[in-house]
Amino acid sequence: MVPITHYLMLSAILFALGALGVLINRNIISMFMCVELMLNAVNLAFIAFSRFLNQVDGQIFVFFVMIVAAAEAAVGLALIVLFFRDKSTLDVDQANSLKW
């Protein structure tokens, strides 16, 4: 049996990698993918706890996280398409219309 800490460490590493990707990428699609990676890292932690505490609730939460991620991906990609139509670029630094 692989100990729970190893799953949690993998989850933490993937989450930190996702956060790093959000910070260093300027391509808006890459940033969005790194957010998905962070969501998945959290899902892994939920499922590991669910297994080792022998409770189903963690898996139900993962189910809801997946639904919200799907909804977020649909709306987010629509916004990316709009952004690209408006600015003809995917560089997030060009999204500065609210900055004076």
Partner: peptide
């Protein structure tokens, strides 16, 4: 960004790596 992410990783590892009770 690299030190920030490394700090976040250390923080998460520190928080998660305590000995959890295994009720499996």
């Amino acid at each position: 960004a690299l030190p920030v992410a490394a700090f976040l990783a250390l923080l998460l590892l520190q928080a998660l790596a305590e000995s959890w009770p295994t009720l499996d």
